[in-house]
Design a protein around this nucleic acid. Structure first.
Length: 594
RNA sequence: GGUCGCGUAGCUCAGGGGAUAGAGCAACGGCCUUCUAAGCCGUCGGUCGAAGGUUCGAAUCCUUCCGCGAUCACCA
């Protein structure tokens, strides 16, 4: 039970005794006391003035006096204007340290048996490598999974790969035509990059054809549809759908190259899945659901045979669910896979990590499912995130201004190495130890940068400036952690609970740290509720920053008194452990030295 | 045009009913024979897009307007 809750309970009694009326629970608001005032927690008394019929000052005085009498937990109070600042007793803080300082991941809950949470993320196309946008998606999905699990949920991570469609046919066609049998092995290229190369090649030739046709007097639209390359790609897709053996074989081969490339990237990012699904196996799902809806009269059929949902009552328009030729669209598939997943897992929640350009799609998905009578429709959660933009605008694959995921990670690694060498962090930059450090530091910089921003906001990525190693960054937090490790090691003392006693009181700087650590479980809970790693990231920074200031002002190893030194080492070690736990929720690993 | 989202320091972002709005970067000035300077301290920098409203109290909630973005396909 948190201090706030204990106080709340007693506050209700106190106010009842004083003024003969119980306050509304919603009116009780505690906040952390500002640094410039004495105290730990502050009660805002304005809401109780109607009950007390006194001015803010005396109301606060009365409540404070009653609380301190009732609760040993409160050691002192003071009143400033309508704010009642309460000091929590040292006993409480020592008790908190004793109970938690030596339990690893103290804020983490054990995973409950019960309804799982499904989370789908990444979901790439197989015709080109992963880029910056995917990085945000993957890191968000990965981090949210970790956070939900730490908050006590069973989490199932899903990846639904879009492995079929016209885009893959384009790559396949280009490879047949201009590839000359090139393979990842023969070219030395990563499989996904190789396939991406042919996708671009297709587009180049396709554009030439369009230009030629336009010159011959066709309209742009006609040219796009009549270009021989496009006709050929469509023909290939038709063959694929009919199960043409040759096409299917080629398709399998090229996709397998892409998967090998993706796996490498995922591994480097530290991202993994429990289950990978493929649209080639799911794209026919959902038709029967639509059929049932049609029979029940919930959906309707137009003269041309296409099937629609009328969402005008919900303030939206009509939505197509089956084409006039009876084939399914994106929405149909999603209805099908959602129903299938629900049947398999009976999850508490189904989270889709998908960019905000699909907000409308998920609104429709929820509404259509609800209309069709699925009570679980409300468990669908769209974790919508903003686009990653570049200084010169949006990323457009066709225009070539795409930040490739692998390239970016390589760049980050180089920068980390360069910085490390400048600062003389390691003796031999080619040693395995150094390589591991540069890898951890560069990934921390990247991950922290992407995750510290509120998911729903779009973010600007400036290649030269965005990823920093100083200030509010992953490496700064790693650095703080590494310093604490070295501090503890140098002391030669193994921190243990015998050091925690109230012989010496607690310094204000020490208390700041303890209070910060104390709030970690709450931060974790709210991050899980809001599906927002940004809360964790900003918390980790605050804690690291707090320790750095503490470290600057409070001697640890230089302290004369062995017992005090021992206590501060315990506090330092607990801080490090909390920082590590928080960063683990972002998928960021901590180096022991840097 | 309809719907949704966003607008906070020069830049990138926190804060989402409470006290004097915070960090980092950039700029400037200090601190390395003292626990790791990827650090710490200080200075500079704000009509929280605008106007109304609700409230004891609004950057935060409501309304309108302005600006930016997304979306409204028999694409996925």
């Amino acid at each position: 039970m948190t201090i706030e809750n204990i106080l709340k309970k007693h506050l209700i009694d106190v106010i009842d005794e004083l003024y003969g009326q119980k306050p509304d629970k919603a009116q009780i608001s505690f906040q952390k006391t500002r640094k410039e005032f004495e105290g730990d927690l502050t009660l805002v008394v304005f809401p109780f003035l109607k009950l007390s019929r006194k001015n803010p000052q005396s109301t606060a005085e009365e409540i404070g006096a009653s609380l301190i009498q009732k609760l040993a937990l409160i050691s002192d109070y003071n009143v400033i204007k309508g704010f009642l600042n309460l000091s929590i007793s040292n006993d409480f803080w020592f008790g908190f340290l004793r109970d938690n300082a030596f339990s690893k991941d103290f804020a983490y809950k054990t995973v409950e048996e019960g309804k799982p949470i499904l989370i789908e993320f990444s979901s790439p196309n197989t015709n080109k490598p992963l880029h910056l946008g995917h990085i945000r998606n993957n890191l968000l999905g990965d981090s949210v999974s970790r956070i939900l699990e730490a908050a006590g949920n069973q989490v199932v991570k899903l990846n639904l790969v879009n492995d079929r469609g016209i885009h893959i046919c384009k790559s396949m066609l280009a490879w047949l035509r201009w590839g000359d049998g090139e393979t990842p092995k023969s070219s030395g290229m990563k499989g996904d990059h190789l396939i991406g190369k042919y996708y671009v090649l297709f587009d180049q030739h396709y554009k030439e054809e369009i230009a030629g046709l336009v010159q011959d007097g066709r309209s742009e639209e006609e040219a796009k549809n009549e270009a021989p390359l496009m006709l050929e790609a469509r023909e290939m897709l038709r063959k694929w759908e009919q199960g043409d053996e040759e096409v299917r074989e080629l398709w399998s081969k090229l996709n397998s190259w892409t998967y090998a490339g993706f796996d490498e990237t995922y591994t480097r990012m530290g991202v993994s899945f429990h289950l990978t699904q493929y649209e080639s196996q799911t794209y026919l799902h959902g038709k029967s659901i639509v059929q049932q809806g049609l029979e029940k009269g919930i959906l309707f059929r137009k003269e041309d045979g296409s099937v629609w949902a009328d969402l005008s009552k919900e303030g939206l328009d009509e939505k197509l669910l089956l084409r006039s030729d009876g084939t399914s669209v994106y929405m149909t598939q999603d209805l099908g896979t959602a129903a299938e997943r629900y049947a398999k897992y009976q999850p508490e929640k189904m989270i889709y990590v998908v960019g905000n350009e699909q907000n409308y799609h998920f609104d429709v998905l929820r509404i259509v499912l609800a209309k069709l009578g699925y009570s679980w429709a409300s468990c669908i959660n769209h974790l919508s995130y903003g686009m990653v933009e570049l200084p010169d605008g949006k990323m457009k694959s066709r225009e070539g201004n795409v930040v490739d995921a692998d390239d970016l990670m390589n760049e980050m690694y180089k920068t980390a190495r360069q910085k490390g060498e400048e600062l003389g962090k390691v003796k031999d930059s080619n040693s395995n130890e150094a390589k591991e450090l540069y890898q951890k530091v560069s990934m921390a910089a990247l991950k922290y940068f992407m995750l510290k921003v509120d998911p729903k906001k779009k973010m600007l990525f400036i290649p030269e400036e965005s990823i920093d190693f100083n200030g509010n960054t992953g490496p700064f937090i790693q650095y703080t952690y590494a310093r604490i490790q070295s501090l503890v090691q140098k002391s030669g003392i193994k921190p243990d609970s015998s050091a925690i006693n109230d012989k010496y009181g607690i310094l204000p700087k020490e208390k700041e740290i303890i209070k910060l650590i104390y709030t970690f479980p709450e931060v974790l809970d709210s991050a899980a509720a809001a599906l927002s790693p940004a809360l964790i990231a900003n918390y980790a920074y605050e804690l690291a920053k707090g320790f750095n200031q503490f470290y600057q002002e409070v001697p640890v190893l230089k302290e004369e008194d062995v017992d005090i030194r021992h206590f501060r080492l315990v506090l330092a070690a607990f801080t490090a452990e909390t920082i590590r736990s928080a960063m683990a929720l972002l998928g960021i690993e901590m180096p022991e030295r840097m």
